[in-house]
Design a protein around this nucleic acid. Structure first.
Lengths: 220, 220
DNA sequence: CGGCGCGAATTGTGATCACATCGTGCCGGG
DNA sequence: CCCGGCACGATGTGATCACAATTCGCGCCG
């Protein structure tokens, strides 16, 4: 019913988790929207038990937030929280990129270039969801070559928290005047220049932080 | 049922989570040990449902690992995983320390000094569990002043993964020839020297990595 | 004496139910 | 017209049950 494309049988709670996760990453779940266990369960055709596990897993990853009374909703990080999250990204992601560098080949660079073009067209078309998805794909594909699952898990947890805001960002601003640091990263990749690669990734993340800051509720 | 001392009622799954979490952090759960949901549930006097939620939450935080057949066990990170984890700590923890710096007062410094002394005595006494606990307390108390919950959550996830190994480390090595970077950190705190503080924390983490590397199974 | 297959006990998964609590809207009084 | 309390519905929590897959031990065969 959900995604029978893979031959490996996926447990119900895993399917629910993936569905919710991708909806959060793609910004289909608006920040502030509240979820109910029965609602999620019925929407995805399972009982409450796997729905609860998936929701709690996302809460553990801070992709969802729970009030002290157990109500679940998509969190909207304030400016301070965003500052923390993007700071974490600017510290961790260059490390992942540099670790991936030795394992990069021409084929991957062209894949990345293709994603970057799709990203550019989403930006022109004003397709915020597509932009966020392509951006995640770009970084995710690059970092996957680092073969660093523990670091990757940390970064993905941060993405889960920032994505809803980014969706909002690209949906509202004119998306103009954006420097394409992905190009710089690709050049550094081709030149096998670790220093330049780290700088490009860091700049890319920090540019995201600038944008996010404008669209987020003020901090304390 | 278990700890009615606090006035705030703690849900069963939360109680189970805290119990398991502290057992992992203190090294009471040996790496490689396997857990069963029914075992955990019975041991803590709850039914399977909250036990499952607590275990899955810890799995989501990578403090526990699940085989593809659903079996749960305490993971023993190999050398490569440890390298990732300590690298993350050396990137994130100086940031937390520096963010805490403006909010440090004399009272906190003396609290930290007290913890550091307890840490030293645990080291002399060969109390590995006490050492790990005191070390976590030292870093945790310092970083709590950063008021950066998102960053803190990332670091705590990493601690959950490294603690079992550290317990093993301090249990086996003679714990000799350890430079006390905590002293250096305290001095930097007193002098309000952000640069020196970051360097001390980074050195402390990297020293831990050196020790852990020896006691971990080799990587790929 | 050692490897191997088979069966029983164990284990994770998912569904369903009972219950306490919380949120919400409605109604009556000021 | 507005505010406050009350009742009903909705929601999270936890327990229990049925089931399928897996694991492990025991006995058998080579």
């Amino acid at each position: 019913m959900n995604a029978p494309s893979t031959d490996a049988p996926v447990p119900a709670h895993e399917a629910v988790y993936r569905a919710l996760r991708s909806q959060i990453l793609d910004g289909e779940l608006a920040p502030g929207a509240s979820l109910t266990l029965r609602g999620v369960a019925e929407r995805l055709g399972v009982s409450m038990t796997p729905a609860r596990e998936a929701v709690r897993r996302l809460v553990a990853e801070r992709a969802l937030a729970m009030t002290d009374t157990g109500r679940v909703q998509v969190p909207l990080p304030d400016a301070d929280a965003l500052d923390e999250l993007f700071r974490a990204r600017s510290l961790l992601e260059p490390e992942l990129a540099v670790r991936a560098l030795p394992r990069i080949d021409k084929a991957l660079i062209s894949q990345l270039r293709a994603i970057d073009e799709r990203l550019g067209s989403c930006l022109e078309a004003g397709d915020a969801a597509g932009y966020v998805r392509a951006n995640n794909a770009f970084h995710g594909l690059l970092y996957s070559r680092a073969e660093a699952p523990a670091l990757m898990a940390l970064v993905e947890s941060v993405w889960l928290q920032t994505s809803p805001v980014m969706r909002r960002v690209y949906g509202r601003t004119g998306t103009g005047a954006l420097v394409d640091y992905h190009e710089a990263a690709l050049d550094a990749l081709a030149a096998r220049d670790a220093e330049a690669l780290a700088a490009a990734i860091r700049s890319d993340v920090e540019q995201g932080m600038m944008l996010a800051r404008e669209a987020a509720p003020p901090g304390r």
